[in-house]
């Protein structure tokens, strides 16, 4: 990968969005302790390890009612 420079216009926004989603869902998981299903360790692992799928799943169907 000698021409990383060429890919920077892609990689920076990608990294920002990924990290943003991941952090947002992680913070939400840590600050709330009721989930529609699953438990805290499961959601932490899902949010950190599955790219965008974990956060999307968490916000859509995993998040408990407040």
């Amino acid at each position: 990968m000698e021409n990383l420079q060429e890919y920077l216009p892609f990689l920076i926004p990608l990294a920002v969005i990924q990290a943003g989603l991941m952090l947002a869902s992680l913070i939400h998981v840590l600050r709330h302790d009721t989930y529609r299903f699953g438990n805290r360790p499961l959601w932490i692992v899902l949010c950190l390890a599955t790219g965008i799928i974990g956060p999307v799943l968490y916000f859509a169907i995993g998040r408990g009612d407040e």
Partner: peptide, 23 residues
């Protein structure tokens, strides 16, 4: 419920990803 944010983020990601993968 973060629906708006999640949708926007994912589709933004897909929009950036597609040309990247092609390249």
């Amino acid at each position: 419920t973060y629906r708006l944010v999640v949708l926007a983020a994912v589709f933004l990601l897909l929009g950036v990803m597609s040309p990247l993968f092609a390249k």
